[in-house]
């Protein structure tokens, strides 16, 4: 079964390395890992997808919690989440075929973001199934190149996962009193 973990981590050199090193050392098999900024300075957010048939989600979560630079971690698998993946897909197509691609794109609410003589680049956002669906339809046309961001996820409703102050005691090396703000709907 696929599990999605959302982690807030300190945004400082080496933290991604610590997380990646942990996964490698413990032989955790990760399907995707995305990292990006949040609305708070010094706090990054990671979305981690793993298959719990070969890697225990509980063990991954517990091991992440032991990393000093991890501020928050939650398994959102059984919560109502919005999850998104973004793909750029370069498809081989001549002028004659473009209209068909444009039509497909429209059905998937995708955009054509680049047009060249014999190719177009399609940008699509959505959950992974939707993107997989478009990819399958485009594959016979000839996919030249593709990149996907991997899943990012957020729980629906007013429950927030963030660190309240992002203030780190002036020490650039790991300390920082960060508390978790939990919305009214939290249990």
């Amino acid at each position: 079964m696929k599990h999605t973990l959302v982690a807030l981590v300190q945004d400082k050199p080496g933290v991604l390395n610590r997380v990646a090193s942990l996964f490698r050392r413990r032989a955790f098999n990760i399907e995707s890992l995305t990292v990006g900024h949040t609305d708070q300075p010094h706090v990054s957010r990671m979305t981690i997808v793993l298959d719990s048939d070969n890697t225990s989600a509980h063990l991954v979560e517990a091991n992440l919690a032991k990393l000093v630079n991890v501020i928050d971690i939650q398994d959102v698998t059984n919560q109502e989440t919005i999850s998104r993946d973004l793909a750029l897909i370069k498809v081989r197509v001549d002028a004659a075929g473009r209209a068909e691609i444009a039509q497909l794109a429209e059905i998937f609410r995708a955009k054509i973001v680049d047009v060249a003589n014999d190719s177009v680049v399609v940008e699509v956002t959505g959950d992974e199934d939707k993107i997989d669906g478009l990819v399958e339809l485009l594959r016979p046309k000839g996919i030249l190149e593709m990149v996907r961001t991997g899943r990012i996820a957020m729980v629906r409703g007013n429950q927030a996962r963030k660190s309240t102050n992002g203030h780190y005691n002036g020490n650039g090396n790991g300390n920082g009193h960060v508390t978790r703000e939990v919305g009214a709907s939290s249990v």
Partner: peptide, 9 residues
């Protein structure tokens, strides 16, 4: 001392 991960532990 307050570590970022202290609440998780």
């Amino acid at each position: 001392i307050h570590l970022p991960n202290e609440r998780l532990l």
